[in-house]
């Protein structure tokens, strides 16, 4: 989703944690003002995290409730998960989402990775303008992107369907890949490619055999990010999908509009578990990349 804006989606994580913990204040006798402030902040943070997790926890709990209306707890059941698997519109929309996310991710990774490398290695005229243009899809409000693509397709008389969805999703996914790869390139020793060229490699071989392997963590992270963004996208899809290409978020949105639905609770639980796995995996990748950066070809 959202494109939202924002590279910030990954920025905070990809930063090495080098800042030392703040120095401990000299221990003062009694409970000073700072001590109370600290306690207050800790309590506040706990409340904020509670606020963030309580609704999700309630949903997961409800997904195992036998009661259709969820007013009271009537016992444990897997029934809603079973119904989920036999709900044809939902399964179809999931397949559509997988097709769209798969295709847009491939395109986004191709465009984003080559784009990042080319912008890094060449001094293009208008490089700043090009870079700014790349960032536009990341910061642009989704609804504006959705309607502007809709009028483009309407004018070009293209029928809305899988193809238009893939074009739209690639457009907002590839800048995230590009920025992720660019961040990694900045940490790379710039002499690396020259060394390969001096040793007789063609620019293509140098890229394929030397640069690309160094970029792997960023490319993997970008791939995951593009796939997730595409799987999650609702607003842009609403404007660029045709009747036969409803995506999973569109289907969920339609169901949620009607109100509570035990099947949606089960689906939400699956979503949450998938997200947790995704976050832990990217975190693992990030740590590997941070460790790898110390040994492989990073800037001295």
């Amino acid at each position: 989703m959202s494109s939202v804006l924002v590279a910030p989606k990954h920025e905070p994580v990809s930063k090495p944690s080098t800042v030392p913990a703040p120095p401990k204040r000299a221990s003062r006798p009694g409970r000073s003002g700072a001590w109370w402030v600290e306690r207050g902040l800790a309590l506040w943070t706990a409340l904020v995290l509670g606020f963030l997790y309580l609704p999700i926890a309630v949903l997961i709990g409800y997904s195992f409730n036998q009661s259709r209306l969820n007013i009271t707890w009537e016992g444990f059941t897997w029934r809603w998960y079973g119904e989920l698997l036999s709900n044809k519109p939902l399964i179809d929309s999931f397949k559509n989402s997988l097709i769209v996310a798969g295709a847009s991710t491939v395109l986004a990774v191709l465009i984003g990775t080559t784009g990042a490398w080319l912008l890094h290695r060449h001094r293009y005229r208008f490089a700043r303008a090009i870079q700014a243009l790349v960032c536009v899809p990341m910061v642009m409000p989704e609804i504006v992107m959705g309607i502007s693509l809709l009028v483009l397709f309407a004018l070009a008389q293209v029928d809305l369907g899988h193809a238009t969805l893939i074009l739209a999703h690639t457009t907002f996914c590839f800048p995230f890949v590009l920025v992720a790869v660019q961040a990694r390139l900045q940490g790379l020793d710039p002499a690396l490619e020259e060394a390969a060229l001096d040793l007789g490699a063609t620019p293509w071989r140098a890229f394929w055999l030397v640069i690309l392997p160094c970029l792997r963590p960023a490319v993997v992270a970008g791939t995951l990010m593009a796939f997730t963004l595409s799987m999650d996208e609702l607003i842009i899809s609403l404007f660029t999908a045709g009747p036969g290409s409803r995506t999973l978020p569109m289907q969920v949105y339609g169901m949620a509009k009607v109100g509570l639905n035990p099947m949606l609770n089960a689906l939400s639980a699956i979503f949450v578990v998938t997200t947790v796995a995704f976050v832990l995996f990217t975190e693992h990748l990030r740590r590997m990349a941070a460790r790898g950066a110390d040994t492989t070809f990073s800037k001295p």
Binding site: M1, P55, I56, Y62, L234, P249, A256, F271, V276
Partner: peptide, 19 residues
């Protein structure tokens, strides 16, 4: 703990409040 809700579908998180 903040990243997990950040990456969880906003649709699901909105739906939770209906319940």
């Amino acid at each position: 703990l903040v990243m997990i809700p950040f990456w969880t579908s906003f649709l699901i998180r909105t739906y939770a409040w209906i319940a």
